[in-house]
Design a protein around this nucleic acid. Sequence first.
DNA 1: AACCCCGGGGTTGTCGGACCAAAATGTCGC
DNA 2: GCGACATTTTGGTCCGACAACCCCGGGGTT
Lengths: 257, 257
Amino acid sequence: MSLADLSNAAAQERAGQERNEPVYRLVVRSIEAKIMSGEWAVGDRVPAETALAAGFGVHRSTVREAIRVLEQNGLVRRHDGGKLLYVTAPREADISEKVTAAIVLQEISFFELWESMRCFEPVLAECAAMRIDDDMLAALRANVEKTKAALEDKQSLVELDIEFHQIIARASRNRALQLSREPMSQLFYPAFLKVFSRLNAGERLVFAHEKILQALATRNSAEARSWMDKHIVDFRRGYELANFDIEAPVVWSGRPA
Amino acid sequence: MSLADLSNAAAQERAGQERNEPVYRLVVRSIEAKIMSGEWAVGDRVPAETALAAGFGVHRSTVREAIRVLEQNGLVRRHDGGKLLYVTAPREADISEKVTAAIVLQEISFFELWESMRCFEPVLAECAAMRIDDDMLAALRANVEKTKAALEDKQSLVELDIEFHQIIARASRNRALQLSREPMSQLFYPAFLKVFSRLNAGERLVFAHEKILQALATRNSAEARSWMDKHIVDFRRGYELANFDIEAPVVWSGRPA
DNA sequence: AACCCCGGGGTTGTCGGACCAAAATGTCGC
DNA sequence: GCGACATTTTGGTCCGACAACCCCGGGGTT
């Protein structure tokens, strides 16, 4: 870190598009670049605010605003309960909230969400069939058993369903797809609760999950994909049967635990 | 906005999980809640920093840190060149950078990215076939014509390819899928440049694009999907033929224009 | 040697106040 | 009605300060 960094960024700016970029944003970009380029590796400790301020030749308040931005982007983080700041790779959760907010505020329809899930889930199942390991298979089996035992408890049913799909997503071993799916599922599955409250679809759900599990256990990716697709299509029918408007914007149901 | 807001948030916190949450975060949550609940509608002007500080009973610096967070989340924004802050719904671009950073720093492999694109693009093409309008069809035709004329200029070829897929994504009229695809494509298509530099694949690209365009024009969603799938699979072959390691982590190639 | 307690130093969170440039707004003359 | 000019807001940055708290190492105990 040095004084030159800001001048560099400023020069790049002059040649570029926007003039008069605030200093705190220059600081953000400067630090961002250090992290993305690997100069500051994940796990490294970030210098103290005062040190950064001195290094960049700006006031600590300015540095603090930059840090808030980086923190929000998940590029730096303080270990639970601690004060010290470390470089870190953004996590699912960092992204997920933001995508969730975007979907809600853009008033994206439930149909769009469903269509996305119909895009993701079958592919994830297909990938999972090829790559799932015994641990995850065991977890899935346990999940299905618990689901069978919870046919009466709508709330648990929904939670178990979410878990079922989450395990499959993990088993796909494709972090990019997981990243995309996570926020969707966050908004999608709560709709399950509404549907289950009106319909008695527990049996259908267990049936589908069993079929999918079986396909995964035998590493039959085509079957896994096909059953998952049926499962998702089936859910849409349930949604409409329960008399919900599929074109209505997705709604936001509070914070997670 | 009132003094009560922070006490509410603080109370919620005491009952909740984390103790000692910083005030600026309470301010964030408070404003966030106002926006998500619709109390502050999209398009409304956000009060001045001094007003907010007075309202919440905190120092202006504290409010500013909160604003940086909200700004980063895309919940508030200042209209181009202006100073005033307005409530707004997060946009693609807000999300996109963050996901991009996450993918790079998590060292996600190009294979995972490719698999994601193979998940998205065919579905997007399928949806587009059902919903594309004449304007977008015209835009696609123009794009393909320009591509034919630019067979020698690798750089333009890549840009036109990106545009081609972007138009289709828009034509799908599924904003949720677009949201997911955007960051992937941002990292994916730059790889095109590397491939095109080593292979002379312009003809194949134009051929595929023409087939896809034709399917879209005739609203044949099955064909659109199938050709797009071939197109993506084909790209992977090119990537390997050009002797790139498909398991290597995705790399970050600077800022967009 | 391993462990726990403790206190000083480092770091963050928050505050008060101040200045300037640029944007926003109001005013006036045409 | 509409532009040019004067005035008020507003955001960006800085200075300096202080308390609470974490961090880490030293010293004592087992």
